Simulated scan of single mutants.
Amino acid sequence: MSKDQLDSVLVSVHNGVGRLSLNRPRQINALSHPMVGLLQDALDRWRADPEVRVVVLTGEGERGFCAGGDIRAIYDDARAGTDTSLEFWAHEYRLNATLATYPKPVVAFMAGIVMGGGVGLAVHASHRVVREDSVVAMPEVGIGFTPDVGGLFVLSRSPGQVGTHLTLTGDRMVAADALYAGFADHFIPAARWEQALAALETTDPGAALRALSTEPDEPCELQPQREWIDACYAADRIEDILGSLAAHPDERARATAERLRSLSPTALKVSLRALRAAAGDEDVSQTLQRDLRVSARSLAGHDFPEGIRAQVIDRDRTPRWLPAELGEVTDADVEAYFADLGDRELQIPQPSSPTTKES
């Protein structure tokens, strides 16, 4: 591993706090395979280390905690017909599972942009902190993909049909929305973050964070929209959801129908199927195992690479989805995304002592 790769995660221990800081600020701390390994190694070392009482996750720079994974590398992998990304995802999803079941408190400070793989790091922590500039999203459907990193486990448990709305639109959440949807636990203004970090060295994390928490200044945008969201997204077929959105008197619902019609029909159907399945999962490891199956099939499919091309590579914003119409995506097409991967199935070691998140 090169020095740059080693420096991509800053690792330190001070007064009982093990701190892991993502350190690729120019890339908004986009998650690379070496970073996943460094994070996993530190967490494995600290699991039984008496010198580490609490783990803290932060991101360097002013732009955000983590903008997600390396999309260009995934595109190159898909174009080459190789499956290097599958190995990355397997390691990333094991890391997500580690965070979800870690035997010590994990505090994620979700500054700025927190998307995709960044959500996978933060949302499974036992304590999730947002602030004024936090922007949280799982925007994968916009590039012909499906929300992964265990995000659907959380989305399927959001109030009413809010999680369905967020899954299918990829809409961004401000701090109040993240709290409402179950992606964060505390709002602490940026001016108090250094105080919060210092308090973790001497005080129980839950008590320390609650003492500094307050209500966000910016109001929640999702809660006032529950009437049309719950009414329109209850169905288990995308066609029915679109029909409800298009016929609803609220103009926001009708505008959402237009947005969804521009997205990958396959990604919409697969994402809804995966979200409904996640609602029945007993723990996030089941969701993550399904995530790897869907990710593997998306990598080998047409729409995911095409979505990256249109949004990230060529930036022409005109993806050519295949199939292009919802009616052309059969139930068998969707179910194929969820088939067993055989010897490539995600293997997640069972934790020695599972924990529950403190209030």
Rank of each mutant, 00 (worst) to 15 (best):
M1K: 12
S8G: 13
V11K: 06
H14G: 04
I28N: 12
N29S: 07
S32V: 14
S32K: 00
S32C: 10
V36R: 10
L38S: 13
D44C: 07
R47Y: 00
D49R: 08
G61I: 12
F65C: 11
I71P: 00
R72I: 11
A73Y: 00
I74G: 00
A80N: 07
S85E: 14
A97L: 04
A100Q: 00
T101A: 14
P105K: 07
M110P: 06
I113Q: 15
M115S: 12
M115Y: 11
G117P: 06
G120I: 06
L121R: 04
L121V: 13
V136M: 13
G142H: 05
V149F: 13
V154W: 05
R157W: 01
R157F: 12
T164I: 03
L168A: 11
T169E: 04
A178R: 07
F183G: 01
D185I: 14
P189G: 02
A191E: 13
A191D: 13
L197M: 11
A208H: 12
A211N: 09
L212Q: 04
D240Y: 03
D240M: 12
P249C: 06
P249E: 08
A255V: 08
A267W: 05
L268C: 05
K269A: 02
L272Y: 01
R273H: 09
R273A: 11
L275Y: 02
R276P: 01
A279M: 05
A279G: 03
L288P: 01
R293Y: 05
S298E: 05
G301V: 13
H302E: 02
P305L: 07
I313Y: 01
P319C: 07
A324L: 15
G327F: 06
G327T: 06
V334N: 11
A336P: 02
A336R: 15
L341K: 07
D343Q: 14
R344I: 11
R344M: 09
Q347W: 14
K357H: 04
